[in-house]
Amino acid sequence: MTTPPARRRVATLGETMALARSRDIGSLRHASDLVLGIGGAESNVAIALSRLGLDAAWLGRVGDDPLGERVVREVRAEGVDVLAIVDSGAPTGLMLKERPRPSSMRVLYYRAGSAGSRLSPADVPDGWIERADLLHLTGITALLSESAREALSVAIERARSAGATVAFDINYRSSLAAPALAGPWLRDLAERADVVFGGPEEFELLYPGTDGVAACERLLRSGPTEAVLKRGADGATTVLRTGAVASPGFVVDVVDTVGAGDAFVAGYLSALLEGADVEARLHRANVCGAMLCMTPGDWESSPTLREVEQFTASAGDPVLR
């Protein structure tokens, strides 16, 4: 009888909001029916990691309201270890999604002054980060507020002191900060991480005047060991100090791309923690991202390992036989 592989604990922290999306194509001004759920980059990753067989933990602040209760309940129901700080002085943030046209998606955020934006270093208890093998953070939380940015900075220092790997997804949101402000803040966090994810424009935001690969190479000279360049349907490239490894993407029928980057990150990190080589990490990441795009929702279609294997075996054929 073989012993199952040990589960690796990943810790992540950030804001998760209530999410309301329209069922039909068209503007929200004419929508008569909305679907209520939740969404947040860090909890999306935690849920996806849990489905891939890893022990994941999420920490965040929610309002003392029904939407905050829903956030906690749904993330916990997906097998994630949840540490929620209930804030009676601020509401849970809200995200709205509409499909103006069949091929487009628009996201509206109502998060100014939200409970999640009030995250601070004091919210992260002693030992919570130190028990993790890997700490995952995103640039979204870094731009929510000064206290949230400080929480990420302290979290990185604690993780590094404990010998944990630090992963950082740039995940720039222009609605939270202008490029001139966001660039230096995100660069500081990225340079202190081990693995950094981002699209070409996001890496270029860190180092204006460079293209995606050149920006990745410059980042690696500042500390990280790998930079993962996400290109959507065109696949992805991991830039290492020894060179670059590219992996093709998958052509699928796209329904909703929001959350695909988070599924991609989870696929990559899960394979990394399993000791897989770069090619295998990129392949799983591309599969997870592609599968997430095929249904509505930010995390609902994040696959299990079995589903990843089925998708790979079928070469992307939607009919599983």
Rank of each mutant, 00 (worst) to 15 (best):
L59W: 00
A263D: 09
A167V: 08
T304K: 04
I140E: 02
D253E: 15
R160E: 08
A315V: 01
Q310D: 15
A48W: 06
V255R: 05
A280H: 07
T225C: 07
N44F: 05
V228N: 05
H30N: 13
L269A: 06
V195N: 00
I47G: 04
R21C: 02
A315I: 00
A148D: 04
G127A: 12
C293D: 08
S50L: 03
A313D: 13
A46H: 03
L181K: 11
G316R: 00
R118Q: 15
S27R: 14
L134K: 03
D55A: 01
A164Q: 01
P318N: 09
R241Q: 13
R158K: 15
G275M: 08
L219E: 10
A84Y: 06
G212W: 05
R29L: 13
F203T: 13
M17I: 09
R221Y: 01
R29W: 08
S88Q: 14
A20C: 14
L176R: 10
R160M: 03
G212R: 03
G261H: 06
R21H: 06
A246E: 12
I85D: 03
G212T: 10
G14C: 12
D169P: 08
T237L: 08
P179C: 04
E78Q: 11
Y109I: 01
A271Y: 06
V265E: 04
V319A: 11
I129V: 15
V213P: 05
V265S: 11
N171P: 07
A227L: 07
D188P: 02
R192E: 12
E226W: 06
I38T: 14
G223I: 07
G235N: 07
V228S: 09
S32K: 10
T237S: 14
